[in-house]
Amino acid sequence: MRRLYGAGTGHLLMMLVCLAGAAGAVALVADDPAWRVMLVWFLAAVVVHDLVLFPLYTGADRALSTVTRRRPPLGVPVVNHVRIPLLGAGLTFLMFLPGIIRQGEPFVLGASGLDQSPFLGRWLLLVAAMAVVSALVYAVRVLRPRSPDGEQQVVHGQREQRLGGEPVPDLPPRQ
């Protein structure tokens, strides 16, 4: 079994459970004329996440880390103070996209009697608020006396200065 299949019987059993669920589900919509559109959305969800969204945000994060790691300007690394509000903005943009870009407004109006006019402004305010809070926290971290964690951050900074402002080399390769 293991030689031929590559795993134990339990594995095969679970794979069959998974395929049975999918087969039963597909049978539900086999007669639905829109099944092709559903399939396209299903596959597009994976492709857009794995091959568009993921490379975009990891690429942006690498760029951000490269820019910000050269030398913490005020002794406190700035990277997370940019990263976190950006992630918050991205998450809320994706989740509440229809309201922000006013997509599907006739249906919203028919269901609730309300339009989608406030959402873009509210989202921009939310993003601005996250950025301001992040900047304030940064300011507090720069100005306050160093906590034990902060001390260790400074130690990092000293190591960097000893190396002539070059970033500390990456961690050693793992065995």
């Binding site: 459970v17 998974c18 589900a25 597909v26 559903m38 249906f107």
Partner: peptide, 29 residues
């Protein structure tokens, strides 16, 4: 939940179908 029916198929049918695909794969995983 945001009344955006841009997908052009029945939400109920699609969400129920997707749910069962997920349940099978989730149990196995």
């Amino acid at each position: 939940i945001q009344y955006d029916y841009v997908f052009g198929f029945s939400f109920y049918a699609a969400h129920y179908t997707g749910a069962w695909i997920f349940i099978g794969a989730f149990v196995a995983h």
